[in-house]
Design a protein around this nucleic acid. Structure first.
Lengths: 122, 122
DNA sequence: GACATGTTCAACCATTTGGTTGACAACGAA
DNA sequence: TTCGTTGTCAACCAAATGGTTGAACATGTC
């Protein structure tokens, strides 16, 4: 998969994994504890944890034969930064459009405001 | 896939789809315009757009035989709300832990505090 | 009507994903 | 040492994903 952002998004695109993250936000837990509520094998949850771990969302610290899993909250920043950036742009675009339309009505209805050129691809 | 949150996360877990969203945040575009920069068939992009559409991230308006695609920014809220909720909880937990450790040092410095978990640098 | 353009649909293929079971490694307790 | 617990690894399987090509559909243009 390679790129970090894709891995984080993909990791959270599964209800079980999101639930695990939700529970880890309250307290660290062992693999067994995490697996208990679900109706699947421990191995399945172990795999899910590997996905979360690869995405940098959780880390495991081996103590004895059990592993304590805990949430790494900073990775969330990666996502929120991406999201906020484009949401802001999109909303700005709507506001611009709104103000253009408002201006057209406001100033001189006879003068047609030039339409914005469409951007090419970048 | 069913649940909306999973669909939105999954939709953004692909670099091409994220790029499409990024470009749509600047201006609406037709399917053909969106497909142009990528080295895959138009059909492939049409499929990707269906994923984004199913997730509620974009909508298409048919005018003539072309479809204008545009970004639906509100769906982002679903994600940010989820993320913010658990990030907040997780960070609060760290602050609590920090204060507990600080208190331990404060009251009895001779007692060695357990190691703090290392924070990732970034 | 005939044609080119823009988009989708259908069938197919390779890879990834999320699950299974069975074996094994590491450790604490008996 | 032997045993039960905790977790991972490996091999396998079904379903989903992201791509392909070929055909069809809708709509403006000649």
């Amino acid at each position: 998969m390679a790129d970090p952002l894709s891995e984080v998004f993909a990791a959270l695109a599964d209800p079980t994994r999101r639930d695990i993250v939700a529970r880890l936000s309250m307290a660290d837990a062992t693999v067994g504890e995490l697996a208990a509520p679900y109706d699947v094998s421990v191995q399945a949850i172990s795999k899910q944890l590997k996905v979360l771990e690869a995405a940098g969302l959780v880390t495991k610290t081996a103590d004895a034969q059990r592993r304590s899993v805990h949430l790494e909250a900073e990775v969330f920043d990666l996502m929120t930064k991406w999201i906020e950036r484009y949401r802001r742009d999109a909303e700005q675009r709507y506001r611009r459009l709104d103000s253009v339309l408002a201006e057209m009505n406001w100033l001189d209805p006879s003068e047609q405001a030039p339409l914005k050129r469409e951007r090419k691809t970048r």
